[in-house]
Simulated assay, not measured.
Amino acid sequence: MTNTAVNSPNVLDASAAVRRVTMLAGSYAAVSVTTVTALAAAGASAAQPVWIRLGIVAVSSLVLVALTLRAARGSSGAYRRVRIVSTVMLAATVVIVALPGMFPVWMRLEQAACALLLAGVALIAHGRTLRTHFAK
């Protein structure tokens, strides 16, 4: 016997959307943490604002991953936080990329990659499928 509520198209669509959000958030965390790790391992002497920004990005990326995992288990509160964190971090990242001369070119490119991943998270998280799913 099949449970039609569990196998309905809306639940399957929401499940796929949550998987995509989790995958994008994980990729964002991988890029962020790898950048900090590589910079530290290379013994690079980056300016203090670079270290601060990269540290904030790495920590927020890990928080976003934790929230997406909780949302995947059905937490509507975690889902709301995914929407908020992804939107705020996307806005902050776009500002970093857009400001000329404030950060090195390599960092602006890395942040642009992060912005693309965050845009995917934010778009899917704010989409109708997940809004409907978590409104229940």
Rank of each mutant, 00 (worst) to 15 (best):
V57E: 12
V57L: 14
V57F: 04
A58N: 01
A58M: 06
A58S: 06
S60Y: 13
S60I: 03
S61R: 00
S61M: 00
L62G: 15
L62K: 06
L62F: 04
L62M: 14
L64H: 07
L64T: 05
V65A: 00
T68F: 07
T68G: 00
T68S: 03
L69E: 12
R70E: 15
A71P: 06
A71K: 01
A72V: 09
R73S: 14
R73C: 13
G74I: 04
G74H: 03
G74N: 02
S75N: 06
S76V: 04
S76P: 07
S76R: 08
G77V: 08
G77N: 01
A78W: 15
A78R: 01
A78G: 04
A78P: 13
R80L: 11
R80T: 02
R81P: 02
R81K: 11
V82T: 00
V82H: 05
V82Y: 10
R83H: 14
R83P: 10
I84G: 04
I84Q: 14
V85T: 08
V85M: 10
S86E: 09
S86G: 09
S86Q: 06
T87W: 12
V88N: 03
V88R: 02
V88K: 02
M89F: 09
M89Y: 08
L90S: 05
L90Q: 03
L90E: 06
A91N: 03
A91P: 07
A92K: 05
A92L: 15
A92Y: 12
A92G: 14
A92S: 06
T93E: 02
V94G: 04
V94K: 08
V94L: 13
V95H: 02
V95T: 13
V95N: 05
I96N: 12
V97Q: 07
A98Y: 15
A98L: 15
A98C: 15
